[in-house]
Amino acid sequence: MKPRWSGNLFKEMLWDAACATTKPQFNRKMNAIRLLDNDLFVWLSQIPPTSWARSHFTGRAKTDVLLNNMCESFNNQLVKGRDKPIITCLEFIREYLMKKIVVVHKVIAKINGPLTPYATRVFDEIKADASQYSVMMAGRGRFQVTGGYADQCKVDVNERTCTCRKWQLTGMPCKHGVAAIWDMARNGMNVGVLESSVD
């Protein structure tokens, strides 16, 4: 895309479409691209959105990452072992991964809560946003959550779903889900620790 459509405007519009979590949001973002540059719209439409647009992801992976930086970082670490015979190369990779796992275990050992430090920071932001939402119970673990400008979602706490799809995509309750769980707790339901809702 860069050689034909350079500039921040095209880049931002592409990221807006890629980051949209629902298909209607994605369609609105793609329509904005079409109005700006129909050729870009046609070019993007030829790429299956399941490979680049969050709105079309299944939610099976449970991640909020849209970049391949992790793969590139990993690949960069393997440069030293790449020119070796296959068994030696595989041994290099195994040892590298073993060292990385030890580092991760050391980080985990220092954690005070059930989530990683990064996940805790993200979840704290979600909780801060959730405090601004109002909740109406619809029965059997289902809620209507409303807040902000025209932000209304349907949450099913039992299924761990929200119509914004962020809970399904990331495995972490979105602001609507957190607001619904808090409402359950306020009404005397046993919801346990909020972090237990994280996949």
Rank of each mutant, 00 (worst) to 15 (best):
A138R: 13
W15C: 08
R28C: 05
V102M: 11
V102N: 09
V107L: 14
V178R: 08
S134N: 13
L40A: 15
F57A: 13
D37V: 01
N69W: 01
T21W: 05
Q77A: 12
D83K: 10
F26P: 03
G177F: 04
Y149V: 12
K84T: 00
C174V: 05
M137T: 12
A128Y: 11
F57R: 11
L67F: 05
K154R: 15
T161D: 00
D16Y: 02
L44M: 15
D16N: 11
A32M: 07
G113F: 03
K62L: 02
R165Y: 03
V79R: 13
T21Y: 04
K99I: 05
D183S: 12
P24R: 05
N69C: 03
D151R: 12
A138Y: 06
T116C: 08
Y149K: 13
N31T: 07
W15G: 01
V79Q: 12
Q168F: 00
F26Q: 00
T146L: 00
F10L: 09
G148E: 11
R142K: 12
D183C: 13
I126G: 06
L194M: 15
N31D: 11
D151Y: 06
A138Q: 14
G188S: 08
W182Y: 10
S197W: 14
D199G: 12
K2Y: 13
N190M: 05
E91L: 12
Q46I: 01
R28W: 00
Q132T: 15
A18G: 07
R160T: 00
V102Y: 10
T58I: 03
M184V: 08
A179F: 09
T58K: 05
V103R: 03
V42R: 07
I33C: 09
K175Q: 09
V193H: 08
A17Q: 01
R34S: 04
P48A: 03
D16T: 06
M30D: 06
T63A: 01
S131V: 09
S73G: 14
N190W: 00
A128H: 13
A130C: 07
Q46F: 02
R4C: 08
